[in-house]
Design a binder for these strands. Structure first.
Lengths: 155, 155
DNA sequence: TATTGTTATACTCTATAACTATA
DNA sequence: TATAGTTATAGAGTATAACAATA
């Protein structure tokens, strides 16, 4: 029962999720809501339908997420300047500060984890995980395309 | 806006989750239910409360999970030989075969991903991700301990 | 006619609290 | 009295379908 590289990689993802949950326990922020804020911080303000596309969730679900975040004072809804159907979502000043701090924490954590790697292995690890992420992205995209094909054939 | 090692690692976790969801779309199996079967396959049959501990979820939730998996023919409930309060959960023969196949697929995927890494980097990547996983586990455990401490101080 | 957001509904994941049967 | 599982309830993540307003 060997432990593979993939096992390790998945373990890292799970541990990070657990830490996020611990970190925001007691606040209205959950890992998924933080992801919304994170996306707005990194990719900038946008209309709800675009946010849905960027997050890969349904427009309906974005309504729910933004409702909660707006009530908590993390985001602001405003009318879209040219399209009256659309609603613009932006971080509040407070949330922008929070996200900036989180960005710094994130970079620090990344550095700390890299320090756990032997110095002579670090460059190889950086190259390696990038290559793995890219290959996996290809494989997943291929799987999804195949499944869409099958679904189309069924109907 | 650099992409850190941590970003890559998290991306890998997300991609894997997405692939799992794609893979089991249309079946009653969801990623989390598969995890239950996976745990039973790797760690062996056990009573529900032990399964809850192994999965890190509430005993109540195990009831729900096992209900669905039992209805789908993946697991079997049987009385505990010595403790009449307990219920033993075991994979059915079909599920055992499915899990065995999944184990092979998993190993193959791990090998495929490692092939995406330059040959001279592979050993370093294996060492590196192990070191990162271990360091992160320590950090998460410390965070959780600190939070428990705080919660205790509050009450 | 197509798109944007929302109301309505439902399934899944997850937890805590109260209860029953057993130890 | 403590433990194993279940009933009751609830919040969070997520989806589809139907609908209103707007393009």
């Amino acid at each position: 029962m060997d432990v593979t590289v993939l096992d390790r990689l998945l373990q890292i993802g799970e541990l990070f999720e657990r830490d996020m949950a611990t970190h925001f326990a007691g606040s209205p922020l959950t890992p998924q809501r933080v992801q919304v804020l994170w996306e707005l911080a990194r990719g900038g303000s946008c209309a709800q339908h675009e946010l849905a596309a960027r997050l890969g969730v349904s427009p309906r679900h974005v309504t729910t997420l933004v409702d909660v975040l707006e009530a908590g004072g993390y985001v602001r809804r405003s009318p879209h300047p040219t399209d009256r159907r659309s609603i613009f979502v932006a971080l509040t000043a407070t949330a922008e500060d929070t996200m900036h701090e989180m960005q710094l924490d994130h970079e620090e954590l990344s550095a700390t984890l890299l320090e756990a790697v032997a110095p002579e292995d670090r460059a190889a690890v950086e190259r390696g995980v990038t290559a793995i992420a890219e290959r996996l992205a290809e494989l997943v995209a291929a799987d999804e395309a195949r499944r869409r094909e099958e679904a189309r054939a069924d109907s």
